[in-house]
Design a protein around this nucleic acid. Structure first.
Lengths: 333, 333
DNA sequence: GACTGGACTGGGAGCGCTTTCAGTCTCAGT
DNA sequence: ACTGAGACTGAAAGCGCTCCCAGTCCAGTC
């Protein structure tokens, strides 16, 4: 440990050039003769030189890292496979760059404050913000942020310049239309959080489809995207509308909970009740019965967020991106 | 955007003190009179000053971030709820400090190289390394690392100074003993990856228990911790030892896959075959039937890793920590 | 009143890198 | 031989902060 770091000066000295020349050579900037460039190259290898990112950051005023902030009071939110996949997508793009990914769960007051500070003071080159609630404190931060912000999922209440979202409304509609098309007439929904963009959009899709079909759209219970919430909501649904024959559940996690409750209630799926989920997480293939669900490209969502941020950092002004969703029919409907 | 940052000099000037005094006041170091301390305090607030972390890092030679590196060629590894929970645990501890969490999935060559570089050149104050394989390239890095390294899970092949692990062997043993105790005699196991510490330890526990019971321990198929792998392994198990009446599966994910295959094969769980998993992920409560499994404190694992790293950074030399596991009996056994 | 120790102060030297800019060199063009 | 364009060079000025250290100041002592 703690062997002194090799500095640019040492490289320059060894290569017999000035520090500036060495710097240019290393960043392969123009205006360095081939001879010197190669001399520097050799010196770098001989010495095992690696530039000090901190010093570089100070000099260039660029930090070299972007933060992914996930909002929500419950830190376990990350445990949702959805986020994990998004992170994987983001990470895969960032890996090709020299940016590092700082994860900020920003759960506690203190954590939020730190995040706020980072946003305001350029302790990161950019930020990706996910799953904002309506009136989320993070949203305010985003506005006064001193760095580019890309939203994952269109937030409620304002239209940010940069965001990537899945076509939730369309997906919700497709799911519901599918229920209609298969002959269900007493269709209910377990929504996601309605203070989140994805939750409301999927719910709107549900309404759209039922309106077109001329069916009653009043069978609704609000959920929270999580499994237990889904189970609870299903119980409520069953209690209030015992005759329902189809249900659109706004997340697979909730759908898994709902399936369990249906089974416990002795309702056969899909014979008595058809169930359609949303997200197409890997577990959806393996539920009993396998879950019909709306696929959204989750890793791609992460990738596109990262790419969009990169684009903004590069000075471009990319347009918001809506990723397509598509229905995957399995045995639960 | 891009409003110039307020610097310490401005604060100092406004407070009518020297930059050094201001610095001391802000870091509440000694040797600052109460008067000046307060003047600085006021100036900070008036100006909205926030110290520049990069500059501070350069001056103090401390980066202010720690990296969590998860090894494994498959980036989707993170999608394992296990890791997600670990991250949550780590994050909760770090949130109380001024360290940020850099996530490094280090999947590609390039990513690995970058990580290696960071480890060697103090681009982070410390590292947490998870799920190393035997002969993992990351292990080599860890040795030549210039910063403290804490391992999550004891790696195979060497004994690091600092690690946090769950008592996998004991857990595997408890799980298997439970199968024995409930009268199973033809007990099989689906192991995890045997090139990982956790995989082998659980397998050893399995062997321990069967040895004591004097039962045959040859019914084994190697899995990979993931759901599909578990399903496949279960198929193999069934094919080779159709008479098995109990199986210890080294992860809940795999157990879920195994349950599915057993169901498809028409074996009733637990009547025909008892199944015990490992990890106690939240999904384990909701499988059909609910899964008997070995609980390990996953978030705590993350928390303790972070705490241990913090301790090392503080100059202490904490001892390795083995977290207890405990059997949770549900309906699958 | 000279002296001492302790509390405080601020100048200044870095931390390692980038980048500007005044020059120097080369060489084709005249 | 002279000129100017263009390629290259390196000294020096930062980036914003920390921290050492030589001082100053002010009781408190004798």
């Amino acid at each position: 440990m703690a062997k002194r770091q090799v500095t640019l000066d040492e490289v320059a000295e060894r290569a017999g050039v000035s520090r500036s020349a060495a710097s240019r050579a290393i960043n392969n900037a123009p205006n360095v003769s081939r001879v010197k460039r190669e001399a520097v190259q050799r010196a770098v290898e001989a010495l095992g030189y690696v530039p000090n990112a901190t010093a570089r950051a100070l000099a260039t005023q660029q930090v070299g890292s972007v933060v992914l902030a996930i909002s929500g009071e419950d830190p376990a939110l990350l445990a949702d496979p959805f986020f994990a996949e998004v992170v994987v997508g983001i990470s895969s793009v960032l890996e090709e760059t020299d940016l590092e990914l700082v994860l900020s769960l920003a759960t506690s007051e203190r954590g939020q404050a730190r995040l706020a500070q980072r946003l305001r003071t350029r302790q990161a080159d950019g930020v990706m913000l996910m799953s904002l609630r309506e009136n989320d404190p993070l949203a305010a931060l985003a506005h006064q942020a001193d760095v580019p912000v890309v939203f994952g999922g269109r937030p409620l209440g304002f239209e940010p310049s940069y965001y990537v979202d899945a076509d939730n409304r369309c997906g919700g509609r497709a799911a519901t239309e599918h229920l209609v098309a298969t002959g269900r007439t007493r269709i209910a929904t377990i929504t996601g959080r309605l203070d989140e963009g994805a939750g409301t959009a999927r719910y709107q899709g549900f309404q759209d489809a039922l309106a077109v079909a001329g069916l009653d759209a009043s069978r609704i219970v609000q959920g929270d995207f999580a499994e237990d919430g889904g189970a609870q909501a299903m119980g409520e649904l069953l209690a209030r509308w015992p005759d329902l024959d189809g249900v659109f559940v706004a997340s697979d996690q909730m759908a898994i909970g709902a399936l369990r409750v249906l089974r416990e209630a002795g309702r056969s799926v899909p014979d008595d009740v058809a169930v359609v989920g949303f997200n197409d997480i890997s577990a959806a293939r393996h539920t009993v019965p396998p879950l019909t669900t709306v696929h959204q490209p989750i890793q791609a969502l992460g990738r596109e967020m990262a790419r969009m941020l990169l684009a903004v950092l590069a000075g471009e002004q990319p347009s918001p991106l809506i990723l397509p969703t598509r229905l995957v029919v399995r045995a639960s409907s």
